[in-house]
Design a protein around this nucleic acid. Structure first.
Length: 400
DNA sequence: AGGTATTCACATGAAACTATTCTCTGAGTTAGG
DNA sequence: TAACTCAGAGAATAGTTTCATGTGAATACCTGT
C-alpha cells in the first residue's frame, strides 16, 4: 500500500500542473487590474483622497450584490492610498473588518475589541463592559494625530444582528477624539439595508453612496480572462469554457466570485481525473459539486436541533403533498424522544424553519389557508439527486 | 347574491430567562523577612 | 507585608422560553331582494 501511494505521489508530481497560481482564482485575491470598475475606483479614490492631506474624507457607503467587486475595489483603492501615505509619511491607517465573521466581528463589543487588537491593545473576548472597550479604543488611537479609515465589510449583517447602535457610536466617536479622526467605508450586500436604520445615522454615515451594478456576461468574460492568465498555465482551457462559465454566473446575478469559483473547481476536478484540458463537461460537474458542497457544509454545521427539524421535514416529504409547520412539529417531537433530545417549543421550531429557508435548504412560504389558519408551506429546495446523501448525513449525525 | 364578521393556526415581536465564558475586585491565606 | 488564591459580582453572548399581539382569507352568518 505504502509503495502504491508513493508511486501515486511521484506520478502526481511529474504531471504538468494545470494551475500556475491557484491563488489568483481564490477569494481573497486582490488583482492589480480590475476590469469594468474604473469608474468606481476613480470615485472612491476621489472621495478618500483628502485623507492624504490629513483631512477627514466623507463616509462612504457601497452597495451591490455579491460578487460585484465591492470588496476587491475597496481593498485595491485603500491599498494604493496606504502605499502613497507610507511614502509621504502620512499617519494614515486603514483597518478592514469583515462583520460577517462569526465570533470575530459580528457584535458591537467584538467589532470594537477587534479594532483595539488592530491598534495593539489587548482586549479580552468577554467580561468587560462595552463602554470600557470603547474607552480603550479611543485612548489607543487618540494619543497621536492620525487618520483612520475603517472599512466595514458586510455591514448589513452586523446591523441585522446587533442593531444600529454601533454605527451611531462610531459616527459620534469623532467628536470625542482630539487628535485622531475616523472615516467609515461601509460595504453592504443588501440594497434595502439602509431603509432599516435610523435616518440620522443614515445621513451621517452615507455622505457618499455608490452602487456597484452586476456584471453582464461579457464583462464577466473579461474578468475571467484576466484571472485565467494569472491562474492557469497557457492553453489548458478548451474553447467555450470561459463563455459558458460567464453565462452561468450572469444568469444568477452577475456574480464574479461564483464564476471564478466554478472555474477553479472545474480545474481541480480536471486535474484529479488526470486530464490536461478543462472542458465544458468539467464545468457542469463543477457546478454540481459546488452546489452539493455548499449544502453538505451547511447541513453538517447546523446545530443538532436544526438537523433534527430538517430530518423531520425530509421524512415527511415522502408523500408528495404540501407540508405545514404543525405537521413538522409533531414529527419533530416524536423524533426528539427517539434520539434523546429535549424538544423545543413550537415557537423556536418555527424560527428554525425560517432559518433553514434563509439558508436555501428548504422553501418555506407563509400562506393563509383561510378558515384553516396561517402557516408556512414547506418544500425542499435541494436537487433530487442530493436528497439521499443529505438524509444519510442527518441520520449519521443524529445517531438514529 | 352580496356583504360582514369570525375564526383558525400559526407568524411575528419583545422581553425575560438559562448557561457558559470571562474579567475584576476584594477578602482571606500563605510564606518569607 | 507582599504575593497569592479564590469566591462572588458583573458582562457578553447564544439559545431558548414565555407572553402578547398580528394576520389573510376560507367559512359562517346576516340581510335584503
Amino acid at each position: 500500500m505504502a509503495k502504491e501511494l508513493n508511486k501515486f505521489f511521484e506520478s502526481y508530481l511529474k504531471k504538468d500542473p494545470l494551475f500556475k497560481n491557484k491563488k489568483a482564482l481564490q477569494d481573497h485575491f486582490t488583482p492589480d487590474n480590475i476590469p469594468h470598475r474604473d469608474e468606481q475606483i476613480k470615485q472612491i479614490a476621489g472621495i478618500l483622497a483628502p485623507s492624504l492631506r490629513l483631512e477627514k474624507p466623507s463616509n462612504i457607503f457601497i452597495y451591490g450584490k455579491t460578487g460585484t467587486g465591492k470588496t476587491v475595489v475597496s481593498r485595491y483603492v485603500t491599498n494604493q492610498i496606504l502605499e502613497t501615505s507610507k511614502i509621504k509619511k502620512i499617519p494614515l491607517k486603514i483597518s478592514y473588518l469583515n462583520c460577517k465573521m462569526k465570533r470575530v466581528a459580528d457584535t458591537e463589543y467584538r467589532v470594537i475589541a477587534q479594532l483595539c487588537n488592530i491598534f495593539g491593545e489587548k482586549v479580552p473576548a468577554t467580561g468587560l463592559p462595552t463602554d470600557e472597550v470603547y474607552k480603550t479604543f479611543i485612548q489607543s488611537i487618540d494619543n497621536e494625530k492620525q487618520l483612520i479609515i475603517l472599512v466595514l465589510d458586510e455591514i448589513d449583517q452586523l446591523v441585522e444582528k446587533a442593531g444600529d447602535g454601533i454605527l451611531y457610536n462610531l459616527t459620534r466617536i469623532n467628536s470625542e477624539l482630539k487628535n485622531a479622526q475616523i472615516s467609515i467605508l461601509g460595504i453592504s450586500n443588501d440594497l434595502l439595508f439602509v431603509d432599516n436604520i435610523d435616518p440620522r445615522i443614515k445621513s451621517s454615515l452615507s455622505e457618499e453612496e455608490l452602487v456597484f451594478p452586476p456584471y453582464n456576461a461579457i464583462q464577466l468574460q473579461d474578468i475571467m480572462k484576466e484571472r485565467v492568465k494569472l491562474g492557469f498555465r497557457r492553453g489548458v482551457l478548451k474553447n467555450g469554457v470561459i463563455e459558458k462559465c460567464a453565462a452561468y454566473a450572469a444568469r444568477e446575478h452577475g456574480d464574479a466570485r461564483r464564476a471564478l469559483e466554478l472555474l477553479r473547481v472545474a480545474g481541480e476536478m480536471t486535474e484529479r481525473s488526470n486530464q490536461n484540458k478543462i472542458t465544458v463537461k468539467y464545468l457542469d460537474d463543477a457546478e454540481e459539486k459546488v452546489e452539493r458542497d455548499r449544502i453538505v457544509d451547511i447541513i453538517t454545521t447546523q446545530p443538532k436541533q436544526s438537523q433534527l427539524t430538517l430530518h423531520s421535514i425530509f421524512s415527511l416529504n415522502f408523500e408528495n403533498k404540501s407540508l405545514f409547520t404543525g405537521d413538522v412539529y409533531e414529527v419533530y417531537k416524536n423524533n426528539c424522544n427517539t434520539c434523546a433530545l429535549k424538544p423545543l417549543t413550537q415557537r423556536r421550531v418555527s424560527d428554525i424553519i425560517a432559518e433553514l429557508d434563509m439558508l436555501g435548504i428548504i422553501n418555506a412560504k407563509v400562506i393563509s389557508k383561510g378558515r384553516y389558519g396561517r402557516t408556512r408551506e414547506i418544500s425542499l429546495a435541494i436537487p433530487e439527486s442530493s436528497v439521499n446523501e443529505v438524509k444519510e448525513i442527518l441520520i449519521d449525525s443524529l445517531n438514529f
